[in-house]
Design a protein around this nucleic acid. Structure first.
Lengths: 202, 202
DNA sequence: CCTGTATTTCCTCAGATGAAGAATTCATTA
DNA sequence: TAATGAATTCTTCATCTGAGGAAATACAGG
């Protein structure tokens, strides 16, 4: 207990306030546009505290944009077990559940937005998908071209995020999430278990 | 005396040099990161000329990022006529032909990247899709929910651009374009003419 | 030859940005 | 109570940004 001395950290909530403001700004305006000053201002905090707690803008971004779920747990649950012809639907409704709630939605939108202009963020997304997601999908899905199938699923998911949340296409942007999940599920299913080459019918 | 300032002899070509540099930088780094100075430098031109010819950074972006094809001509050709069950394949291979050549690819990637952080670019994409594309698709496709179907197709196309060109997912990024077209075509077909619900009646 | 206009360069401005350091406040602990 | 170290603030720096203006130059038409 002798090691514990001085003012206890975190009793003011400053760090969390900065993180909350950063999540919001990164998810709404990408990586470049939010400044450390604008984030600090929204958090009601001195700009120097951002650097004090996180060191740099990039470190703050990395700290704040983490997946709101653990792929190591989620993917086996989604892909394992039976019901191979229901994977598309299960995956779609899981994605919807993540994207419709603030914590998950903001982080994922922030990642996607940032990846469009920050090469480092693009690398994060690429490695995260490759290491955390694709590898496990390959493991669970007993199909050839599992990596490509996971790529295609990822492309549809990213496209949906762009279309619904970033670009705001109507009617997609205003639809109930469940309807979107229902519309997308068959195609996710096709990417995962259908024929890839000259597939004749869905 | 060699003049250090003033008009250079011969044909200028300056305007085109600026446009070429701008296309390249917007497509590789989005809207915010390229500066008028960096574009001018790449064009081998004084920064003031960028403002002189285009007025502002935003005007330069708008001038440079135009669709490399005319939807008014392309869409009726794709959707009109018979072969309703081949629309997905025709659309996929048209998209591939546009995306695999420098002029079209750079403009579309530039638009997508910019839309992620520039609200004005997002608005451009939204209105362009709504006015130039969706409206004509609705006209040609005699189906209910034509706008939503076009939204879903757009989401897949944008997602493909992000996954292949921006994030660089493997193996998607290194595959021959025709293979990708073949893999995506059935899903585009499904979005356009298949059932939209969960496979049951909508 | 001379004037006008388009092209080009240089210079300036006002503001924002990420980063860094010094100084101040204050709860906890010895 | 005094010392400690974390939490916080203020100030500074060097740089970049988009924008605008003034002047220099060269070509074209009269």
């Amino acid at each position: 207990m002798a090691a514990r001395s001085g003012r206890r950290p975190g009793d003011s909530g400053t760090r969390d306030a900065i993180r909350a403001a950063a999540i919001e700004q990164f998810s709404e305006r990408g990586y470049d546009r939010p400044s450390m000053r604008s984030i600090a201002q929204q958090a009601g905090v001195d700009p120097a505290l951002v650097k004090h707690y996180f060191g740099s803008k990039h470190a703050l971004f990395v700290d704040v944009v983490e997946l709101p779920f653990d792929p190591a747990l989620v993917i086996p649950a989604l892909f394992g077990g039976g019901g191979r012809d229901q994977i598309g639907a299960r995956l779609a409704s899981f994605l919807v559940s993540v994207l419709e709630q603030p914590p998950g939605r903001q982080r994922i939108i922030g990642l996607v937005r940032a990846a469009a202009s920050e090469p480092e963020a693009a690398r994060m997304v690429r490695e995260l998908l490759t290491r955390e997601i694709f590898a496990r999908v390959v493991e669970e899905l007993r199909v050839d071209d599992a990596a490509l199938r996971a790529n295609l699923v990822a492309s549809q998911v990213v496209g949906l995020v762009m279309a619904r949340y970033v670009v705001g296409l109507e009617p997609l942007a205003s639809m109930p999430a469940e309807d979107i999940a229902a519309a997308v599920a068959p195609n996710l299913q096709h990417y995962l278990t259908g024929p890839l080459g000259a597939g004749t019918d869905t």
